[in-house]
């Protein structure tokens, strides 16, 4: 996947030089292992900063919201789906964008990898499907497929769904993936077990809102948790308030979530926040045959009405 970088730089340089865009949004090398930092490049001579590897899990659609410049954005499958969302929801104009599509083979889970080693990780490099981890002076080879972020392992839209440039051949999509095993596992629990499961899941939450802010879907000028007149949710560490934040955040993503995993990746305390959105994604698929961000030509099911919409829940 790192082979893409030459093409990304070349495309970025060309677009900046010929004036097609004012800036390119991509990633630059991070200062710690398994992290890259989103950045913008405005000068052709600065494109050398751009990088691409398996540490580009942050969703760059988040950096496009309401921007007015002409922008080229590096987009893997999920980013491109969120760009579609953004266009459909009028958060960015299609004609302002040049989408540099990246067929993606998944991002690695830095927490999972860190958890595999007793000592801190000094460096991580990659060679195709092999991840080389140096910890305490010793190098370990890992198969990338074993250390993917969970959402990437379950991804069935690795190729960008919308693009103007492509930095490599489209890749074969994964098939036969059981995307919702975790949802079914929770569904099989009793109400008390479910309650306790989410209680435990959310107990480390520090209300930093990294999950919300990493998400391209969350762009309200004032979030309901920040609203003070009226105040919908308490601001303390109360577990009920914390839970209210998490499930209401998820509701706001219903029919919009692309399962890019940015929320889970951003969480500083490792909460599996996708446990909420996955359930909604599965329901959207089953009830409306809908997966978010695949097309510009269809309104999302939750902002349209159809006479045959499932409505069994209304008595």
């Amino acid at each position: 996947m790192s082979l893409y970088i030459d093409k990304i730089k070349e495309t970025a340089e060309r677009l900046l030089k010929d004036g097609s865009v004012d800036m390119v949004i991509g990633f630059r090398k991070g200062s710690v292992p398994m992290m890259n930092e989103p950045c913008f490049i405005q000068k052709p001579q600065e494109v050398h900063q751009l990088v691409w590897d398996s540490n580009c899990g942050i969703n760059l659609a988040n950096y496009l919201t309401d921007r007015k410049e002409k922008i080229a954005v590096v987009a893997k499958g999920c980013d491109s789906r969120n760009i579609v969302n953004h266009i459909v929801e009028n958060k960015i104009k299609r004609e302002k964008l040049v989408i540099i599509g990246v067929p993606c083979t998944g991002m690695i889970d830095k927490r999972k990898i860190a958890g595999m080693f007793d000592k801190p990780i000094d460096a991580v490099t990659e060679d195709g499907d092999i991840i080389l981890v140096t910890s305490a002076g010793k190098e370990t080879r890992l198969n990338k497929t074993d250390v993917l972020q969970e959402n990437c392992a379950l991804c069935i839209h690795r190729n960008p769904v919308i693009y103007d440039e492509l930095v490599g051949d489209l890749i074969e999509e994964q098939t036969g993936i059981d995307r919702y095993a975790e949802v079914r596992r929770v569904e099989a629990m009793s109400p008390q077990e479910k309650w306790q499961y989410f209680e435990d899941l959310l107990s480390p939450c520090i209300r930093c809102y990294a999950c919300r802010n990493a998400c391209p879907l969350c762009y309200c000028p004032t979030c309901f948790v920040d609203e003070s007149r009226p105040q919908w949710v308490g601001k303390s560490q109360d577990p009920i308030d914390t839970r209210t934040f998490h499930f209401l955040r998820a509701y706001h993503c219903a029919g919009r979530c692309t399962d890019c995993g940015a929320c889970e990746r951003a969480c500083p305390v490792g909460i599996k926040v996708r446990q909420f959105t996955s359930k909604l994604n599965r329901d959207c698929l089953e009830m409306f045959g809908w997966e978010a961000g695949l097309t510009l030509d269809q309104r999302p099911p939750l902002d349209t009405y159809k006479p045959n919409d499932p409505n069994d829940f209304i008595k």
Partner: peptide, 30 residues
């Protein structure tokens, strides 16, 4: 409702009904 039940609200505790202002009988029954 699905997500509410998914996170542990007992089935039946949260219910939705559509009742016209003219449907007094349905309102009482509900």
């Amino acid at each position: 409702m699905n997500l509410m039940e998914h996170m542990g609200i007992e089935p039946g505790r949260l219910q939705f009904s559509w009742i016209s202002s003219a449907e007094s009988t349905k309102f009482v029954e509900t």
